[in-house]
Structure formats: C-alpha cells, structure tokens
C-alpha cells in the first residue's frame, strides 16, 4: 500500500511539471512585455532591473522557467505587485479559509449525496426517488454564486440566521458550505443511486437473500459497500470540480480565501499572485485525486491485491 502511494506520488511529478509549465507561460502569453506585467505602473528603471534579475527575464525561456520553478519549490512565489508583499504570505493567509470551506463542502456533499442516493435507489421509480433526483438536478443547475446570493438574501437578510459575509465565526461557514456542497451533492447522489441499483443486481446479493439476511442489512452492509467504490472513483475524478465551486462561492461570501484572492488578482492584473493561486489550486486537485485513488484501493481487496 505504501509502495502504491509512493508510485502514485512519483507519477504526479510529470503532471506537476506540465501544469507548472502552463502556469509559468501565462506571464509570457498575456499581451505586453512580461516586465510590465510584473511591475506596478510607474515603477522606475531600478525596479525594472531588480525584476529582470529576479526572474532572469534577459535569459532564455528555459532558464527563466528553471529560475521560477526552483523559486517555487523553495517556497518563493514572488512578490505581489499590488500588495507589495511576498505572495507566499498572501497564500498562507488565504489557504486555511479555502481548506476549511473545501473540506467541509466535500464532507457535506459526500454525506448528503450518499444518503439521498441510497434513499432514491431503495425507492426506485417511486415518488421519493423522483422527488430527490428532481430536486438534486435543480440544485445542480443553479450557478453557485447565484445560489449563494439567494441564501444570503433569505437566511441572512430576511431571517437573520447567519452572518452575511466574512469568516470570523463558524456560523459564517454554514451558507458557503451549503452553496458549494449542493453541486457535489447532486453528483454524489446520482452516482450512488445508479451504483446501488447496479450492485443490487449482482449475483452475490441473491445469495445473501438466500442466506436469510435482512434486506436492510443487505442494502447497507453489502450493496452500499459496493456502490461506494464507483462513488469514490467519481469523487476522486471530480474532486477538483467540487473544489472549483469554492472559488466562485468565496467571492460571494467575501471569505478571504484563495478564490477571492485569485479573482481579485485577475481583475488587478497581479500576475504573480494569479500564478501562485492557480498552482496551489492545481496541486490541491492533484492531491485530492490521489487521496481518492488510495481510498478506493483501500476499499477493494481486489485492487489491493493487484497493487501488491
């Protein structure tokens, strides 16, 4: 198992390099001189020299990439143009907010998605199934930021139950988590439902009935156990998709997280910060996928055996 995790980590290295090349190129692909893109407007010539030396802008692209990458690997993400502070500081401030939101939203999606999916599958084609799947579909067709605004309007402004924005109290986390989590809930519920229905038709389920096991125990201990394997697969593939929702929702709730930082920097053309945010988000996605794969392997003895 440890060997498997190690091999998967090794596999991530080329992926990380490829992603880093794309993110590095942003600064060169945007219109205009890279130096101007890295400087505050109205900077003097000596600052131009500092930046040129810092990023090696007078050297070939490969060397520039190497300078940038080695900096990144040592935790040096450059200096924010607008804030005039190390980007690493900004990221360090924002990351905990995003992590909390992302993890809570993931837990929310997984729990409610599985519960709703199981209820729908056990009541297949009956009213409960159609109501749940219809509601879940409706939830996933609403843009996250809009749903967030609606929730603010209803629960914060009209009912006064939660703070409108910010991240100072735990109650401020409730609405963002619900907003981000609903999209994922829809996905998890759909996959769980289909996987439950498919697993219930497997041969061994009939033998469980033949052994005289209670249907509830069969469904929860055996059928669900199997259905969870594809659910974890989809979750690990789409973990980034769920976390991506957090980017837009943070802005709506004015949570000082990575998403807010990214959108603000995009609008301010603060490219070192944009690069750093994208890199961190990409790494989060890669790690999430890896964790999903490991959990999947841990759940299925057949996969475990194949991994040695």
């Amino acid at each position: 198992m440890l060997g498997y995790i190690f091999r998967r980590l090794l596999l991530l290295v080329p992926v990380f390099l490829a992603v880093s090349v794309v993110i590095f190129s942003i600064i060169h692909l945007i219109p205009g001189d890279p130096i101007d893109n890295l400087l505050k407007i109205g900077s003097g010539p000596e600052q131009r020299e500092i930046i040129t030396a810092r990023y090696g802008l007078d050297k070939p692209l490969v060397v520039q990439y190497w300078i940038w990458l080695s900096g990144v690997l040592q935790g040096d993400l450059g200096t924010a143009i607008v804030a005039r502070r190390p980007v690493a500081d900004l990221i360090a401030q924002a990351l905990p907010h995003s992590l909390t939101l992302g993890l809570c939203a993931l837990a929310f999606s997984t729990t409610f998605g599985i519960v709703l999916g199981v209820i729908a599958a056990l009541n297949r084609d009956k009213f409960a199934d159609q109501a749940i799947m219809g509601g879940v579909l409706l939830g996933s067709t609403m843009p996250g930021f809009w749903l967030g605004l609606l929730l603010i309007l209803v629960f914060s402004v009209w009912l006064g139950m939660f703070p409108v924005s910010g991240a100072r109290t735990w109650s401020a986390l409730v609405l963002p988590v619900v907003t981000v989590g609903l999209g994922g809930t829809a996905l998890v519920a759909r996959v769980t439902r289909v996987a439950m229905i498919e697993a219930a038709q497997r041969d061994f389920v009939m033998l469980l009935h033949a052994k005289g096991m209670r249907p509830l125990r069969i469904n929860l201990r055996h059928v669900l156990r199997h259905a969870l394997i594809p659910v974890v697969t989809i979750l690990s593939l789409r973990i980034g998709w769920i976390l991506g929702g957090a980017v837009t929702v943070e802005v709506v709730f004015a949570r000082p997280g990575l998403g807010t930082l990214l959108i603000k920097s995009l609008n301010q053309h603060d490219y070192p910060v944009v690069q750093a945010c994208l890199l961190i988000l990409a790494m989060a996605v890669m790690l999430g996928t890896l964790i999903g794969d490991v959990i999947q392997a841990a759940m299925d003895p057949r996969i475990r055996a194949a991994l040695g």
Binding site: D203, F204, L207, L208, H226, M299, D300, P301, R302
Partner: peptide
C-alpha cells in the same frame, strides 16, 4: 456461478 456468488469485499 461461484465466481460471483460471494461478496468480493
């Protein structure tokens, strides 16, 4: 079919 009769996990 004994191949599929037992719960694989």
């Amino acid at each position: 079919n004994p191949m599929t009769a037992l719960d694989p996990v």
